[in-house]
């Protein structure tokens, strides 16, 4: 475990906590895409199939449980909580997210490191995570005026991906047994690039101390 990987995991964890904090304390999920949250829950469920069959470390198991638990509680809040669900921007959150799932599954069946059920599901989760933020980015663009917590949530998610790339570069040079991982690297790079536009506007808004506003 290197510092970049740890920092990446911590920003990822913070992004989820910021989102839960917003939902739990303000009792609002305005500006949050349910489509993206559904995709993330699916990503974690598909990737962590090994949670009870393969032990890596206590850290690894605890973090997996936190990510699974938090993503499904966010779904519960947005769909079932009687106050929170009323603040959901249903009419704006129209991205056809189901159309992302099938191509990712087909791609995982075609391009993977090993053709086994667990490995294909793991690869599927890598592909799906790369594009899972799209409904959220589209919703942000539509609402344009982004509240602070939502902006921080997306910023932290982007930072997590960026830090993971530095972690891969570090591992490649520092760990003798670490070989090339094109599937994770290319997917991770694509995912980070999707945030580039958002990052530009977010950093400008922080610098100028104004509310984040995305162009139409």
């Amino acid at each position: 475990m290197n510092i970049f990987r740890l920092a990446g995991d911590m920003t990822h964890l913070m992004s989820v906590l910021v989102l839960l904090l917003k939902i739990h304390t303000i009792k609002s999920c305005a500006g949050i895409s349910l489509k993206t949250q559904e995709l993330y829950a699916l990503v974690f469920a598909a990737r962590y199939l090994d949670i009870f069959t393969h032990y890596y470390s206590l850290y690894n198991t605890v973090m997996k449980l936190i990510f699974l638990g938090s993503s499904f509680s966010i779904l519960w809040y947005m769909k079932r909580h009687k106050v929170v669900r009323r603040s959901y921007d249903k009419d704006q959150d129209t991205f056809r997210h189901h159309f992302l799932v099938l191509p990712c599954l087909v791609l995982a069946l075609l391009i993977n490191e090993k053709f086994t059920f667990k490995e294909v599901m793991w690869t599927f989760s890598i592909y799906l995570e790369a594009v899972a933020i799209l409904p959220q980015l589209v919703l942000l663009q539509r609402t344009r005026n982004v509240d602070n917590l939502t902006g921080q949530y997306v910023f932290l998610l982007g930072a997590y991906r960026g830090l993971y790339i530095i972690n891969w570069i570090y591992r490649y040079f520092a760990e003798p047994t670490y070989s090339t991982h094109w599937i994770t690297w290319i997917s991770g790079l694509l995912q980070t690039l999707l945030y580039a536009d958002f990052f530009y506007y977010y950093i400008n808004s922080v610098k100028n101390n104004v509310r984040l506003q995305l162009p139409a």
Binding site: R5, D9, H12, D50, H54, Y56, S57, N60, M63, K64, F67, E113, K114, E119, W122, Y164, N167, R171, E175, T177, Y178, S179, H181, I183, T184
Partner: peptide
Amino acid sequence: SSQQASHDEL
């Protein structure tokens, strides 16, 4: 194995 090296990440 190299398989596990990428799978120890979250």
